[in-house]
Design a protein around this nucleic acid. Structure first.
Length: 298
DNA sequence: TCCCAGGACCGTG
DNA sequence: CACGGTCATGGG
């Protein structure tokens, strides 16, 4: 049945300090990314919502993001889920005024916030995806991490084809929970990481771990650290990318170290003690400070 | 070939 | 509690 064209569109208003093109720089950082596609100023993605694959793309318009559903308008319920996903993904609910005010007084951040103004923390709204991605990225270079994710997604995700390109959903914990260590070893994950991922999938399947639950925790970090395979770095990474914690701070992050080394024109990477000292000024905005520093490496 | 990579776990002292 | 060995493989 034909729908009126107006029903195939939806607009999400964006905050003042929002620059879609800056966000696209982050989104476009890996040519191996297969969970969305960036073409010019358009991002296309598919989500599985209420047991249905929903494809949408978004483009910036004045003061808003325009979402379009080229394969057909979703149900009212699903279109609201897409809206929520996008707001979550681009962190549209956070007011950055205080961050920018703080950053202006910090010699380390002042140039970065001017250069990248409007960049938001690009999130990973799906908790399972955030946790798995954190585990995959541990102790290996980012290029290889993307290779692993690509294999994982294309082995166990769902997909559809639009304009001759295939779009993938991230695998569900239910599907992964049925696998064995051997299955994941075949993707060249280490045995240990395979165990971690299976454990996370199982915990999310049997209901002992969920995003809703974590968001209600007084101490999200402590809860995350109880998960096997999630240490301080991963816990803070997930808090920053999935749980919208502004104070999350992956202190041990190699990318953070490299960015600081460059920004401070150092011969060596700073120690964690030195980083803790710099971060004192960022109190309350550690996640954004980290994200802007990461951005400086692209 | 060597060192490093968006670490975490586990055993030892 | 701090330290170091171990995992395990690709990228540059």
């Amino acid at each position: 049945m034909m729908k009126k064209q107006s029903e195939l569109y939806m607009e999400i208003s964006t905050p003042v300090d929002f620059n879609f093109m800056e966000c696209l720089v982050h989104l476009g950082r890996s040519s191996q990314e297969n969970l969305y596609r960036v073409q010019n100023a358009r991002v296309t993605k598919v989500l599985k919502l209420n047991n249905e694959l929903v494809l949408f793309h978004m483009t910036p318009v004045k003061g808003a993001l325009r979402l379009a559903f080229p394969l057909g308008a979703p149900t009212a319920s699903n279109s609201e889920l897409v809206r929520a996903y996008v707001e979550d993904w681009f962190d549209l609910q956070t007011d950055l005024q205080d961050f920018y005010a703080m950053a202006q007084t910090d010699s380390l951040l002042s140039a970065l916030v001017q250069q990248y103004r409007g960049l938001r923390v690009i999130g990973v709204p799906d908790l399972f995806e955030a946790l798995v991605w954190a585990v995959m990225g541990q102790q290996i270079n980012l290029t290889f991490a993307y290779t692993l994710k690509k294999r994982f997604v294309e082995s166990y995700g769902e997909s559809l084809i639009y304009e001759e390109e295939r779009y993938w959903t991230f695998p569900s914990p239910e599907k992964i929970a049925l696998l064995s260590v051997t299955d994941l070893r075949a993707l060249q994950l280490t045995g240990r990481k395979a165990e971690y991922i299976l454990g996370i999938a199982l915990a999310m399947t049997n209901g002992t771990l969920s995003k809703e639950q974590l968001l209600q925790e007084q101490d999200m970090e402590r809860s995350l650290l109880e998960i096997r395979g999630i240490g301080a770095w991963s816990a803070n990474y997930v808090m920053m990318k999935c749980l919208h914690s502004q104070t999350a701070f992956p202190l041990a992050d190699v990318g953070l170290h490299n960015a600081l080394k460059v920004q401070l024109n150092m011969e060596r990477k700073p120690t964690q003690v030195e980083i803790t000292k710099f971060a004192e000024k960022w109190r309350g905005w550690e996640a954004y400070a980290t994200f802007y520093l990461w951005r400086s490496l692209l």
